[in-house]
């Protein structure tokens, strides 16, 4: 294969993959803004209360959890820091939400990106979220946080 052909394949192939990923990412970004503006997040936060209960964390954690899960770690972390400043989030919930989001965030974007290159999306989404929930639930049972604010420590029971 000549150098020209290699360069051509390298460029065209790259452009083709960017195009196929853009076809998925662009509509998703518009859709996410629509979701924000119709108040889907409040709804999501409300409907994730059984989940926060299952993980034994405060109901106030539902909103940062929903934000991080949908919009990503940076956005979720911003909301978490804000809620913690306002005193809405106890140390224990803070740690558990952070742990959950570290393993599982921006699920729509990440999943669809991999679908664009040929992965099984439902499977990927299910494995990732179920594992993160299970892990958080397990850690939730094992950590003991002192009730006084601000100086919680991670320790085995």
């Amino acid at each position: 294969m000549s150098a020209m052909e290699i360069i051509k394949e390298g460029l065209l192939g790259g452009l083709t993959s960017v195009y196929s990923i853009a076809l998925i990412v662009f509509p998703l970004m518009v859709f996410m803004e629509i979701a924000k503006d119709i108040g889907a997040l409040d709804w999501l936060a409300k409907s994730s209360k059984p989940i926060t209960r299952f993980m034994k964390i405060s109901d106030n954690s539902a909103f940062p959890l929903a934000i991080g899960l949908v919009f990503g770690l940076a956005f979720g972390a911003g909301v978490i820091i804000q809620s913690a400043k306002e005193g809405n989030l106890d140390k224990r919930s803070l740690l558990l939400v952070a742990l959950f989001l570290a393993c599982c965030h921006a699920v729509f974007e990440d999943t669809l990106l991999f679908v664009a290159v040929g992965a099984n999306g439902w499977f990927l989404l299910a494995i990732r979220t179920v594992t993160a929930f299970a892990l958080t639930a397990i850690v939730s049972k094992r950590i003991k946080i002192k009730p006084d604010k601000g100086t919680g420590t991670l320790s085995d029971k």
Binding site: G14, S17, I21, V30, E33
Partner: peptide
């Protein structure tokens, strides 16, 4: 405004991923 914001985010994300995917694919 919702659609304008969404489109801006979309274009921004596509440009960002193109900047990374194109050189990686090429190399």
């Amino acid at each position: 405004d919702t659609f304008i914001r969404g489109s801006k985010n979309g274009i921004h994300t596509v440009l960002m991923l193109a900047k990374i995917i194109l050189p990686v694919y090429f190399i």
